[in-house]
């Protein structure tokens, strides 16, 4: 990656900015609400970074500050060492799609791109090219007002790609896409990152992007709660095991003797002979049960999953951790 920002030609994608996004002690208050509260993190090129947090965590505000649409109360947000718009034309430096589906409903998909083409410094042919790239070439002449949410997402993505920028900022791009569309988006984002681009994707659901992202930045209530690679996030997972025994009293005795009483999940306490025990592995329980001569009918390690870690980190774990495994997928939606 070249650091030579000012001298590079616009056509040389990787040289126009070094592509590192730096959020540094960023603060934004709306009245008495601290929407972004002393937030700092870094996003690197060549990787897909998930920008995660529950709705209202401050993701969109952070992105809008980064894009110069909202003025920060304090701190800085830079892309490639400069604030947005310093590298011109901006559409060649950064491609951004924010959550609001921002189309004039009476304008056709192709005309929507043609409107921005002069500012991206590209031809009508490039507009058709990106439209085909996102799979909208067959509806190029149709007005965007009649598009489904998934088609709008594709058109928004086409707009960001118009100037072939080295940095992509996408706010909830998977929202409204069908499973096929999500799989397509995943491949596309991985491909764009593999080309050396910086790809920042926001989402309020980790499971939506966990197969796409390399790194995660997790915020809640405007503050950073976690920033690492996805692998490091996974290492935060705590083991948890479901145990069932025909000898309910024996199971309680075993748990008490092992000192695990405070690790038993409350929701299944009421079911005699069944317990879900956290922060203990199946072999540990199995060994103790064997030693105590306790008959076990189930000894099932439960996959907490990244979503569980995510929800615990953002402080919304209560609702899901007590749910039965088959309900978790639904609760995390």
């Amino acid at each position: 990656m070249s650091k030579d920002v000012a001298m590079s030609s616009p056509a040389d994608r990787n040289a126009s900015t070094d592509g590192v996004i730096v959020i540094d002690h960023l603060v934004k208050t709306f009245g008495s609400v601290r929407a972004v509260d002393d937030l700092s993190f870094t996003v690197r090129p060549g990787r897909v970074t998930g920008f995660l947090g529950p709705n209202g965590a401050g993701k969109t505000t952070t992105l809008r500050i980064l894009l110069g649409l909202v003025a920060p109360t304090a701190g800085t947000a830079t892309i490639g060492g400069t604030t947005y718009g310093q590298v011109t034309p901006p559409m060649r430096a950064v491609g951004a799609a924010l959550e609001a589906a921002s189309f004039h409903p009476g304008r056709s998909a192709l005309d929507h791109l043609r409107v921005y083409a002069p500012q991206a410094g590209v031809s009508d042919a490039r507009c058709r090219e990106v439209l085909a790239f996102v799979g909208l070439d067959t509806v190029a002449g149709r007005r965007a007002g009649g598009f489904s949410l998934g088609m709008r997402q594709r058109l928004a993505l086409a707009t960001t790609l118009l100037g072939d920028p080295p940095v992509l900022l996408l706010d909830e791009p998977a929202n409204g896409l069908d499973p096929e569309g999500i799989a397509w988006l995943r491949l596309l984002l991985r491909h764009l990152a593999a080309e050396g681009r910086t790809v920042l994707v926001s989402s309020h659901v980790l499971s939506e992007v966990e197969q796409t992202v390399d790194d995660v930045v997790i915020i809640a209530r405007g503050r950073l709660v976690h920033s690492s690679s996805l692998a490091e996030l996974a290492s935060l997972a705590e083991p948890s095991v479901r145990v069932r025994s025909p000898n309910a009293a024996g199971l309680v005795a075993l748990i008490t003797a092992a000192g695990w009483a405070d690790r038993v999940e409350p929701a299944v306490v009421g079911q005699p002979g069944v317990a879900v025990i956290h922060r203990v592995t199946a072999p540990e329980i199995g060994a103790r049960a064997f030693a105590a001569g306790l008959e076990l009918h189930e000894l099932v390690p439960r996959d907490v999953g990244l979503e569980g870690i995510f929800l615990r980190l953002v402080g919304e774990d209560a609702g899901v951790e007590v749910a039965e495994p088959h309900l978790e997928a639904g609760a995390a939606r």
């Binding site: 110069g68 649409l69 559409m91 921002s102």
Partner: peptide, 14 residues
Amino acid sequence: RHQTITPTLLAEPS
């Protein structure tokens, strides 16, 4: 009305 002001100001920050 159609929130195109966002992409508009992204394309032309001034």
